[in-house]
Nucleic acid binder design. Structure first.
Length: 571
RNA sequence: GCGGCUGUAGCUCAGCGGAUUAGAGCAUCGGUCUACGGAACCGAGGGUCGGGGGUUCGAAUCCCUCCAGCCGCACCA
């Protein structure tokens, strides 16, 4: 089906083209009518004419094909009121459409880089946003028809691995695996670090081990693979606990690009971009300066001949464009990396590895803050494990459930608490503009009231309970939507706007556009449900209202699902 | 010093490709109920949209400037 917005916009675009080729109607939902056209004023300005006169002229030549009635308002807005026929037709289409009106794109491949924990290090709050936002984007893009390649760019290479491998040997392989297996990565890493700082012989062993690792020594590589495999197994547990779609197959760590780094340097050099500076091989992209006003380099190869992470990122760009065929490269990485990416991409462009038609974007996000508005830490000043955070939310949800529904079976309560706790944390992270920092307030997140994940899950479960009460003999084949009550019409308009919400979230990589839509929809529904009895009215009104319930429930479930939030049928 | 992000109601936040009266949640206060799940609904109070300029018929939204906070600025990723 074609979305309501698109039906209207298509007609308007034709009319605007006649007036001023390429002019944008800027069609928006309106609180004055159903939709409003804001573009007339801009056109009138370029034409040097009176906006209302332009609006009149436009409307005279405009065939809305029975979709809507029009009226000029204020300085030159055109208010659109959808016809009953359009509303009825669109709602009936929604009943039969699994995609609820959302169109699909063809032939695009999105490579989404997200999560990126470090091997042998605990996943902590610092990984929450990348993981949650990235996974929501992966789901949204998949649904939108993109072929999505998820890339978990884990930190699996570098000097720390010397000490980590030596520590593994000190512990003994079995002991080490056991320790990593229970997810005690913090202890493992910290012990290695402490020995490294305190013990000179250990430090020397570590140094030699790094050399062995880099030169491809078999035994060293075998030990390194143990660290990586155990860590990835642990990450996977965390992803499952969070209901994140990343799998071990998506793990393509820094080490993957090692074999490509010499080529990166060679090709940059043949392109004449490499400049040696203080012994390091650098590219100086235009427009970046240091504190002292000197040109700022992208260091491709360090003085010690090791490669920096810029080289890895350059290799990744080439791989994602050239080998994976990516058309949309998204990096869900914290805002502080903005300059790094800007510089690396400038180099990639200069080298010709980043064609104009490839979109590359840093999906930057702000920090998670504690109640003191400083970067979130535990009471004792340590970083907080991601899994602990999740478990705390689940515990709170379980406590609430116990209080509200003491009769519920333990097993069901536990499962529900898991869904609610996850929803609470994910929704809180997704519902504000990702660029901003946000204050982590578990109490508020797990609350069933207000703009929270649990509230939306509840709204959905409440609707499903209507159908449970009813049995399963509903058919919507002959339903017609009369929308006699204002609350019905308001809800209906909300249902028709789902595609715009999804498209907006996809285009801008801003999941909060979708959460905002869903929250608004849930509120429209509860207002409707309060004002309009459903089960106790006569046919055909009963079926019409049930159908509105049905579409609403499906919209909430699908919309939440696209954000990585599961909507249970019962709570 | 340069660059980026942020500053909207007591608190947490939408709105920022300009447009018809600045919105929501929480909190506060006041209503609705023999309720198809009250974990609800309806309503009220509360804002010089950080300050100041500018563009415009019209600016929270665009431009300039200042203030405050956070972050980044060559061999750690």
């Amino acid at each position: 089906m074609t979305s309501t917005y698109e039906l209207l916009a298509a007609r308007l675009r034709t009319a605007f083209d006649d007036l001023l080729p390429g002019a944008d109607p800027t069609l928006r939902v309106s609180d004055r009518s159903d939709y409003q056209v804001n573009g007339v004023m801009a056109v009138a300005k370029s034409l040097g004419e009176n906006p209302r006169a332009v609006a009149d002229r436009l409307m005279n030549g405009l065939d809305m094909g029975g979709l809507a009635t029009m009226e000029v308002a204020g300085p030159g807005f055109i208010n659109l009121t959808l016809t009953p026929e359009l509303l009825d037709g669109q709602l009936r289409s929604l009943l039969g459409d699994d995609r609820l009106g959302v169109s699909e794109v063809q032939g695009r491949t999105a490579v989404i880089d997200y999560s990126a924990p470090n091997v042998a290090k605990e996943m902590h709050v610092g990984h929450l946003r990348s993981t949650v936002i990235g996974d929501a984007l992966a789901r949204l893009y998949r649904f939108k028809g993109y072929s999505v390649v998820a890339r978990n760019h884990v930190g699996d290479w570098g000097t720390p691995f010397g000490m980590l491998i030596e520590h593994l040997l000190d512990l003994g392989e079995e002991e080490a695996i056991a320790s990593l297996g229970i997810g005690d990565l913090n202890t493992f890493y910290r012990s290695a670090r402490e020995k490294f700082d305190a013990d000179d012989t250990f430090k020397e062993r570590s140094r030699l081990r790094v050399v062995a690792l880099q030169s491809g020594d078999d035994e060293t590589l075998r030990l390194w693979r143990i660290l990586v495999a155990e860590s990835v197994a642990y990450f996977t547990e965390v992803y499952e606990a969070l209901d994140v779609t990343l799998t071990p197959a998506d793990v393509v760590g820094e080490s993957f690009y090692n074999p490509m780094l010499n080529d990166v340097v060679r090709d940059l050099d043949s392109a004449g971009l490499i400049v040696e500076s203080d012994g390091a091989l650098c590219v100086f992209p235009e427009g970046f300066t240091t504190r002292e006003g000197e040109p700022l380099p992208v260091i491709v190869q360090k003085r010690d001949e090791g490669f920096g992470y810029a080289a890895t990122d350059l290799a990744a760009v080439r791989n994602r464009v050239g080998d994976l065929g990516g058309t949309d490269l998204l990096y869900v990485v914290g805002a502080p990396q903005a300059q790094h990416f800007a510089m690396v991409w400038a180099v990639a462009r200069a080298a010709g590895w980043l064609p104009e038609n490839v979109r590359i974007e840093h999906i930057a996000f702000g920090s998670v803050l504690g109640p003191d508005r400083k970067v979130f830490k535990s009471r004792s000043g340590e970083t907080v494990k991601l899994i602990s955070l999740l478990n705390e939310a689940i515990d709170k949800a379980a406590a609430t459930l116990l209080e509200r529904s003491p009769d519920m079976e333990l097993e069901q309560r536990t499962e529900l608490a898991t869904h609610i706790g996850r929803a609470a944390i994910k929704y809180a992270d997704l519902s504000s503009d990702r660029q901003r920092d946000y204050v982590f307030d578990l109490e508020r997140m797990v609350n069933f009231e207000g703009d929270t994940g649990p509230y939306l899950q509840y709204a959905h479960a409440r609707i499903r309970s209507i159908f449970r009460r009813l049995g399963d003999e509903v058919s919507f084949d002959d339903v017609h939507f009369m929308l006699g009550e204002p609350a019905e019409r308001t809800l209906a308009l909300g249902l028709l706007a789902f595609p715009e919400a999804v498209d907006g979230a996809v285009a801008t990589c801003q999941p909060h556009r979708l959460t905002g839509y869903l929250f608004d929809l849930a509120q429209r529904f509860t207002s409707f449900y309060e004002a309009c009895p459903v089960l106790s009215v006569d046919e055909p009104l009963r079926s019409e209202r049930l159908a509105l319930c049905e579409i609403t429930a499906r919209t909430l479930r699908l919309g939440l699902g696209l954000l990585g939030i599961y909507a249970p049928d019962q709570m």
